[in-house]
Design a protein around this nucleic acid. Structure first.
Lengths: 184, 184
DNA sequence: TTTACTGTACCGACTAGACGGTTTTTACAC
DNA sequence: GTGTAAAAACCGTCTAGTCGGTACAGTAAA
């Protein structure tokens, strides 16, 4: 239906705007007025789609997690390994550095920082990834955990800007871990 | 001077209370009234010591970083290695899991989440640690970076509760990395 | 007629910070 | 030691403003 398409487009636009606001002025100054204005939509229009601020933030988080999950699975399918393909994907995901991961981070960040801060969906998603790595990736669980912790570590270090390593340092680190993984 | 002692005690008390508030109700609901009430002090009294909310948060962050830095150096002095003692300390710091690291995290978390979110001091501190690991620890820089990223990764995963690994998994992971480090 | 909005006005709750006043502690003269 | 004046530490209220959410009347399109 055209309405649904248009509606979905506006809803995505609103999430984009909310992510922009978080990136530009910080999660604490994420207000409905600001998001509506950034999206070129009236406050009433925003509330038509997301009736509460909590709903808006939950949607940001959902989209963030869905996108990351999709990209991880795509990366896992691309590399032709008999085992460790998900661990490999985890490393591939953070190899290059900060492309739009910062954008992706805003969902989690906003949800964590804001009022209720329901990180439940994020915790569930990370738990799923962790299980997939540990139980179903066919490699030593400790190696899988290593890939996961390094991946998440680099990603979170980038998110907060806590002295992120250079691209070269990052590349060497990931090379080192890939050498530990069994042959494809 | 006695004033200084008493004053310092109250200031510490206020920082403790602020950390409690962040832990109990979340960083977004950290208000001056709440902190003052939690500390058993009036709002005016709080503002006497920390004239703005920003100053209070900055002080939380400072104390958090100073404590972590102190503990890291203490751990580094304890282990008798000719090289890699700081990397070893980094791993020791996160081996056990969440003792009071969550408490330690509140400073960074609150600062990041709240209004201005000046993470400058934290970024500087992490940068100092990173340099110390890479340049002065006498081991392969990539191994040093590995210890750092795994340490920070586990710590940040704990902070957000993003499917933290069990104590056993954590122990095996750190054992694996310690095996990679050169003999003491 | 339904969907998808716009635009404005408004309410109640909350909050940072200012401010004037009060108690406690310290410094020092005697 | 004692009195005392000043400084430090602290109290409680008030103000100005923000923000989430509601309400509602209207509009354009399908």
């Amino acid at each position: 239906m055209r309405q649904d398409l248009k509606s979905a487009r506006t809803r995505d636009l609103l999430l984009d705007a909310a992510a922009d606001v978080v990136r530009d002025v910080g999660a604490a100054k994420l207000s409905l007025d600001r998001v509506a204005h950034a999206a070129g939509v009236s406050k009433g229009g925003l509330l038509y789609h997301y009736p509460t601020k909590q709903a808006l933030i939950a949607a940001m988080l959902d989209r963030t997690l869905a996108r990351a999950d999709h990209q991880l699975h795509q990366l896992a399918d691309q590399n032709d390994r008999t085992s460790g393909s998900f661990a490999q994907a985890y490393l591939d995901y953070v190899r290059s550095g900060q492309p739009d991961e910062l954008d992706s981070a805003t969902g989690i960040f906003a949800s964590a920082a804001l009022d209720d801060g329901d990180l439940g969906p994020a915790q569930a998603q990370f738990s799923t990834w962790q299980n997939r790595l540990i139980d179903e990736d066919g490699i030593d669980p400790t190696l899988a955990l290593l890939a996961r912790v390094v991946g998440d570590g680099l990603w979170l270090i980038d998110l907060f800007g806590l002295a992120p390593p250079t691209k070269e340092q990052r590349g060497l680190l990931i090379d080192l871990i890939e050498d530990l993984l069994p042959e494809p």
